[in-house]
């Protein structure tokens, strides 16, 4: 059954869209990532114009993140204080990121810039997470004891001013590292058109030393607002949010998110992390190959929308 998308101006199979939304929602609920780094390339692959894919992807991520946060909330897995601090940094960073994006667009190299960002950040984070979780699993199997080693922040982090008690995370640290982290993720999310969960989740675990239990919910909480902001920006600036496409993706996504967050309670944290690491690595390798291998079609046609 085909459905015509009014803003994208393409006709797509309804069940294919539902499936895509469901898949991304499932990952969102399971790992606490928004799924923007998956939905955007997937939409482009099925023929949705890139601008519409980025903007509508952001809108879909809002819905699956809300659904995921509500599920985590009932498990008391959201640290609102930490989420708000990250968010303040995130919105500032996203504002800076939009300026960088506009500058690269003016230079005419925004595509390569975005692709290289994907390869570099996804590759680095995927590899680090994979290595760490593989070691954790190996250690657990040898000792038979389930013990998660987390770095309680570096010593210099404890000497920074403006210390705040993050009760849910069991941390008493300066607000400066989370603010900086939020800002860095905000910059990246504006440039890469993603919520930034795949960077936020490992950074919260390894840099801030937050327990895995609250990481997913807190990350989703921050993602709701960053992607919400992105959606409005795109709707106003370029009119590229396709509500029909978003609706179908959301219906699939919210169901997927619920199933995903159920599943996440059944898996051990390090198993969860190794799966996310593999997924992130796979996407980064795919994009790296696109850059390295000679494309079958060297030319590309970009249609400019008439004002």
């Amino acid at each position: 059954m085909q459905i015509y998308l009014p803003i994208a101006e393409v006709s797509v199979n309804l069940f294919l869209l539902l499936g895509l939304g469901g898949l991304v929602g499932f990952l969102s609920g399971m790992f606490g990532v928004g799924g923007g780094f998956l939905i955007t390339p997937l939409l482009m692959f099925i023929g949705v114009p890139p601008g519409v894919a980025v903007a509508t992807g952001a809108n879909q991520v809002v819905a699956s993140s809300i659904s995921g946060v509500l599920a985590q909330l009932r498990r008391k897995g959201v640290d609102f204080v930490m989420g708000t601090v990250l968010l303040i940094g995130g919105l500032t960073g996203s504002f800076i990121g939009v300026q960088i994006f506009a500058y690269m667009t003016a230079l005419g190299q925004v595509d390569v810039f975005v692709q290289l960002s994907y390869v570099f950040f996804l590759g680095f984070i995927g590899a680090t997470m994979f290595w760490e979780s593989a070691r954790a699993i190996w250690r657990n199997q040898r000792q038979g004891a389930q013990q998660i080693r987390r770095t309680q922040g570096h010593s210099w982090m404890h000497s920074l001013p403006f210390k705040v008690k993050f009760r849910k995370s069991g941390l008493f640290i300066s607000i400066l590292p989370p603010l900086a982290l939020g800002a860095a993720v905000g910059i990246l999310s504006a440039i890469m058109g993603v919520g930034g969960g795949f960077i936020l989740v490992p950074a919260m675990i390894y840099l801030l030393g937050m327990p895995t239990k609250v990481v997913v919910g807190t990350s989703l909480f921050q993602i709701i607002f960053v992607t919400g902001f992105t959606t409005i920006m795109h709707a106003v600036n370029s009119q590229t949010v396709d509500m029909m496409l978003a609706f179908v993706l959301i219906v699939g996504g919210v169901i997927g998110a619920q199933i995903g967050s159920r599943m996440s309670t059944r898996l051990k944290p390090e198993q969860l992390r190794i799966l996310l690491a593999l997924l992130v690595l796979a996407v980064s390798i795919k994009i790296a190959l696109d850059l390295l291998l000679m494309p079958t079609e060297l030319y590309s046609v970009t249609r400019l929308v008439l004002p």
């Binding site: 659904s67 919400g228 409005i232």
Partner: peptide, 17 residues
């Protein structure tokens, strides 16, 4: 339109939950 898109997302996310 942008706000409506967000509302749609919020209602759907909450509804599914």
């Amino acid at each position: 339109y942008g706000i409506l898109s967000l509302l749609l997302a919020a209602v759907a996310g909450w509804g599914a939950s």
